[in-house]
């Protein structure tokens, strides 16, 4: 389904947005009031310019001190593969963007990320995974790498990876796997419900998001059975 239709379903009350290049900016009316929409579309390869633009928008919003909630739209194939971007330390610009999302959280802005099309590795790390909560539309693709490419790089036969992916959530692509591991809060089966309002209404106590809960959720859902246990062991050593 195209972005326009999806957005209209997600924000049924009032919606206003512009898409320039790969960046989407806008605002919408929800049950908690006006929210800001910000993110990327069309499987954006995130480069210096996009990362800076998103970061700049977030900082402006924090500066306004209105605690406006933010809905991040995630559709990225990952970082742009370019020497010019790497020369200026693309990872550092991504770290800056991630710090800005964290500042937004600490500034008391309710926020969530919605995965529209793709959420891949570095592009996903830079802002989507930094949000208070992450939701995926049912046909979205969440991954680090395709199984075939993974087979090439790890030199493990693709058949073996496919077979193992039936019983393990640990490496194979899929929003369902990220849900089990605690990084996706829910996969929305349809857009009949006003999910965005519902999520934002539940984020009234924004302080509770200051503590990263993903390892605990991952353990409860049995997607990551070791991680929380090890972290606790280290903290109490």
């Amino acid at each position: 389904m195209n972005t326009e239709v999806l957005l209209q379903q997600l924000f049924p009350h009032q919606l206003d947005y512009q898409i320039e290049g790969y960046v989407i900016k806008g605002s919408a009316q929800t049950d908690v009031g006006q929210v800001r929409i910000l993110g990327t579309v069309n499987a954006a390869p995130i480069n210096q310019q996009i990362a800076m633009e998103l970061a700049g928008e977030i900082l402006q919003l924090v500066q306004q001190k209105q605690q406006t909630p933010v809905v991040f739209i995630v559709d990225t194939q990952g970082q742009d593969l370019s020497r010019a971007d790497e020369l200026l330390c693309l990872n550092r610009t991504f770290a800056h963007l991630a710090s800005c999302v964290d500042l937004l959280r600490r500034g008391g802005h309710a926020n969530l990320a919605i995965i529209f099309g793709q959420a891949v590795s570095g592009g996903f790390l830079s802002y989507g995974l930094m949000a208070n909560e992450v939701y995926a539309l049912s046909d979205s693709q969440v991954k680090v790498m395709d199984l075939n490419a993974m087979a090439r790089v790890t030199k493990i036969p693709a058949d073996k990876l496919k077979e193992l992916s039936q019983s393990s959530a640990i490496f194979a692509p899929g929003a369902e796997n990220f849900y089990k591991m605690g990084a996706i809060n829910a996969i929305w089966p349809d857009l009949e419900t006003d999910w965005v309002s519902q999520v934002l209404l539940n984020q009234q106590h924004v302080e509770s998001y200051l503590v990263d809960q993903r390892r605990i959720v991952g353990q409860q859902r049995q997607g990551r059975v070791l991680c929380n246990h090890i972290i606790e062991k280290v903290i109490h050593s």
């Binding site: 991954k143 790498m145 493990i156 490496f171 591991m181 990084a183 993903r214 991952g218 990551r224 991680c227």
Partner: peptide, 12 residues
């Protein structure tokens, strides 16, 4: 990559 999803979330 052998634990790609767990690794990505761990980095986050």
């Amino acid at each position: 990559l052998h634990e790609a999803n767990a690794g990505l979330i761990a980095i986050s």
